[in-house]
């Protein structure tokens, strides 16, 4: 996947100017920068959800994508497991799903409606949904936002294990997340 001379402005506010980068297959690329520098906008353009003003994204056709968005984008009235099964189908047995839930410290929450979860639990549900979906490219927008230090370390470790050998683009402003997860870092 490659971004070529991407430009994007919202009114007078130019957020991306002639941004070009390669995102190698089978590697984790981190896009790092301070808040408001256009990281999420770049991710949305790469996913094809918003158009660039100029420039282009070259992505092989029929790529399945998975994502953790800037917001959790969970179905609030569905349970944790139903949210995950929306994207996984019946591919995972209940025991397997429980194992994954425990790995992100959501054990025992499978049957809870998402509306009853805390912010951190919702974020982990969104991350698990993205990790368990079938994908060729995974986009992560600040996936560990709102997690306490201890949980974040465990969840990062689990994410590293689950994404080994996969093509991942993730944005963050945290250098430690880059150290643990990224094969390559692009400063924005």
């Amino acid at each position: 996947m490659r971004a070529e001379k991407i430009c994007k402005a919202f009114g007078e506010n130019v957020v991306l100017k002639d941004f070009s980068a390669d995102f190698p297959e089978g590697g984790i690329t981190a896009v790092m920068g301070r808040s408001g520098c256009g990281k999420s906008t770049l991710l949305m353009i790469l996913m094809g959800l918003i158009p660039a003003d100029s420039g282009r994204v070259i992505m092989p056709e029929k790529r399945r994508i998975s994502a953790v968005f800037q917001e959790d984008r969970l179905c609030e009235n569905l349970t944790v497991s139903a949210n995950i099964r929306l994207v996984t189908g019946k591919r995972l047995s209940p025991a397997e799903l429980d194992g994954h839930l425990s790995a992100v410290e959501l054990g025992g929450s499978a049957d809870k409606p998402v509306r009853d979860l805390s912010g951190g639990m919702k974020r982990r549900t969104a991350l698990l949904r993205a990790l368990l979906a079938e994908y060729d490219v995974l986009f992560l927008d600040e996936p560990f936002k709102g997690l306490d230090e201890e949980t974040r370390s465990r969840v990062m470790e689990y994410t590293r294990k689950m994404t080994a050998g996969k093509t991942v683009v993730f944005v963050t402003h945290d250098s430690r997340e880059c150290e643990v997860l990224a094969d390559r870092v692009i400063e924005l």
Binding site: S66, L86, G89
Partner: peptide
């Protein structure tokens, strides 16, 4: 944004109808 999420993940139509739309409409 949930519709956009469903598009990104390629959630099939029947599941999308029940999980994404009906779950928001039933209340």
């Amino acid at each position: 944004k949930l519709t956009e999420m469903a598009n990104v993940f390629g959630i099939p139509a029947t599941k999308r109808f029940a999980g994404v739309y009906l779950s928001q409409l039933l209340p």
